[in-house]
Design a protein around this nucleic acid. Structure first.
Lengths: 208, 208
DNA sequence: CACAGCCAACCTACCAGTAGGTAGGCTGGT
DNA sequence: ACCAGCCTACCTACTGGTAGGTTGGCTGTG
């Protein structure tokens, strides 16, 4: 029984893991070969240049993201619940093994990446932003969320702030303590909950 | 006239710049030597191991931070103005030359850094958090800021959220567009402004 | 003053290790 | 016969780091 290029898939999965742990320039073909028990030249057979692997990792990441979003949409009940699932998944991914999200990882050494990957990366972050924006729009529409700022609420701006904060918190919480990720995201979400009496009841408070 | 170890200072400055642009493992002694017009071995004379340079960079960064904070304290008028100065300085640093803040840069390749540097890094992020916390406490005390969430306002939690968001926004705005940094930080700050009629007047709105 | 000694700062020349990448050969399934 | 998949063997470039030598300015001492 041959693996019928199972190896390629395994390479992608190991790469994705190493990417999150050490960044794109933080792992080598040697690392990949070692973990799969093959030789370095064999890795080059599947991904001739490391840039090819980079592109493939972008595709892999996109699938990973979309699969997550689909899951949150299926299981989630309303906007706030979806966001909380997103946050819980993010925290689990990051803190089980000291990883970053693959997007942040690629973003880290973006300046020295080929232009093709940079463009793909912009596209990826757009995909994520689109989903979160959709969730915020849903929350604003059904009254789960509201923006107390003057003017009309802008779900895209809120989503952007949400993502920026989430990524920053994941990043810094590795250093300062995981509990601060939860704390910060709760504090952010709190401020978008509508003003109700229940809001002062911890039972309905945001718990990520 | 000898430089009387001017070289060491220059090495630190070039290192700090390269750190922000490419991360700690993203530049080499060869790079430093080239930029100063000396040989690689001479760099080793000043910093025998790269870890020594790392530690020295932490000290350098601390001075850089403290100097900035002192500046904001002297020039700033109240809490919100201080925060805005902090944000403007951050944006200027980051977007003039596609740099990260040195703390984020070190944080990026933290896992593969020696323990001594990791500890120093925790200390550094504490220094930053302390200053921002102080500013938030000032703002809460003098009524410039308020937290609409239930329970007593926690200036440290607010400061943490502020910093996380700022770092995340700096990081992601390189990819998505600088203007979103300003937009997001404004949106965050807006929600901590007290509810006044003026708040609906754009003239007194937050502009970073 | 002259001179010896010291030392920071720099140099050339090297090391082992690893990076990404290539050339070409073997093998087993279709 | 073909070819994906894997191999050995190799390349160049570069990494952090070391050994050992040269220079030239400061210093204390006769």
């Amino acid at each position: 029984m041959n693996n019928r290029s199972n190896t390629r898939q395994q390479l992608l999965e190991v790469s994705a893991d190493l990417l999150c742990r050490r960044g794109f320039s933080g792992f080598s073909y040697q690392d990949l070969a070692q973990q799969l028990g093959i030789r370095k030249a064999s890795v080059h057979h599947h991904f001739p240049q490391k840039a090819d692997l980079g592109l493939a990792l972008c595709d892999w990441t996109e699938q990973w993201l979309l699969q997550g979003f689909e899951h949150f949409d299926r299981q989630g009940n309303g906007a706030v619940d979806r966001l909380q699932r997103y946050l819980r998944a993010s925290a689990k991914h990051a803190f089980n093994g000291d990883r970053q999200c693959p997007l942040s990882a690629l973003n880290s050494d973006m300046p020295q990446l080929p232009e093709a990957i940079q463009e793909r990366l912009r596209q990826l972050s757009h995909t994520e932003l689109d989903w979160v924006t959709g969730v915020f729009r849903m929350g604003l529409d059904n009254g789960e969320l509201q923006d107390h700022s003057p003017g009309e609420a802008d779900p895209r701006a809120m989503a952007r702030l949400f993502i920026f904060t989430c990524k920053g918190a994941l990043f810094y919480a590795r250093l300062q303590g995981q509990e601060y990720f939860t704390q910060s995201m709760s504090l952010l979400l709190q401020q978008w909950l509508p003003d109700t009496h229940d809001n002062h009841n911890t039972a309905t408070g945001i718990t990520v």
